[in-house]
Computed example of a mutant assay.
Amino acid sequence: MDMENLETRVKIQIQKWIVEAQELIQRTPPSQLYAAVAVVGFTILLLILIKLFKRTSSNTIVLTGLSGGGKTILFYQLRDGSSHLGTVTSMEPNEGTFVLHTETTKKGKIKPVHIVDVPGHSRLRAKLDEFLPQAAGVVFVVDAVEFLPNCRAASEYLYEVLTSASVVKKNTPVLILCNKVDKVTAHTKEFIRKQLEKEIDKLRASRTVVSEADVTNEFTLGTPGEAFAFSQCHNKVSIGEASGLTGEITQLEEFIRNLVKA
């Protein structure tokens, strides 16, 4: 019986509030009413945008590329400033969330970065698809010393990254990082860029024929009728240099911090 009385009281109170609200709306001039509605609508929209921004903001950076390029050494340099004597290989993704080693002595609050080192072995590249959707940026590591023998394979892998639905739809920035530039026999980043563009241009022509045959639904690269250049990509593609063994990774760190604000 008490419950029924409570429900009756609640209904009466709600009806009273509705009547009072209707009377208030009738007494309020239309101009003030419209302004109030506009303010409430703008506030709701702003809260939605803030929530969406927080939801999509990512601190994940993915390291990928062919095996032997030095990805794992770069991972350890970022994490603890060590090359692990340059003998590191990985058959499973290395993951870690940490403040970059060079920032550990800085004062103030610094946002940790989630770094994922994806193995470059062809049989393990499917792992890349697990991490690309959450990536704020992708670092494609190229061996600047052994580049020419691996140019075709590197171009094919890079093509897969650049045409990935996750990368294209989110306009994920990509850094092509030429590693091992401390070696005398290392190729320059400009040479590597031009060779990759030439190879991808060839791949684009052959893959376009396949796409038109409805065998694949992957995204296409570049501008039709023009030679391919990274500048034609919807997402930003930049070229950098590094040396995992000597710890010269400034351009890599700058790329990361431009995407994951400290």
Rank of each mutant, 00 (worst) to 15 (best):
A205S: 14
T216C: 13
P149H: 00
V141F: 12
V10A: 12
V215S: 09
V138S: 01
G240R: 04
L45W: 11
G70P: 03
E254P: 00
V19E: 03
K170L: 08
I200W: 02
V209C: 01
L52C: 11
F75Y: 13
I50T: 12
S238E: 08
H101M: 00
V62I: 13
Q26W: 01
A126G: 13
E253M: 06
T185K: 15
K180V: 02
G240P: 04
E130T: 15
F42S: 13
K170G: 02
V40I: 13
Q26F: 01
A35P: 04
P93R: 00
G69C: 10
L148S: 08
V118N: 05
V116C: 02
F42C: 07
K169E: 12
P119M: 03
L52N: 13
L74P: 06
D117S: 08
T102K: 12
V62R: 03
F75D: 09
G65D: 06
L221S: 11
G41C: 09
T89H: 15
F219R: 07
T8Q: 15
Q13V: 13
N235V: 08
P119S: 04
R207W: 01
K111F: 06
P29L: 06
Y34L: 11
L128K: 03
R257G: 01
R152P: 10
V138D: 01
K198Q: 13
R257N: 01
E92S: 12
Q232M: 09
S67A: 12
A229V: 15
P119I: 03
E146V: 01
I48K: 15
T43Y: 13
E199M: 14
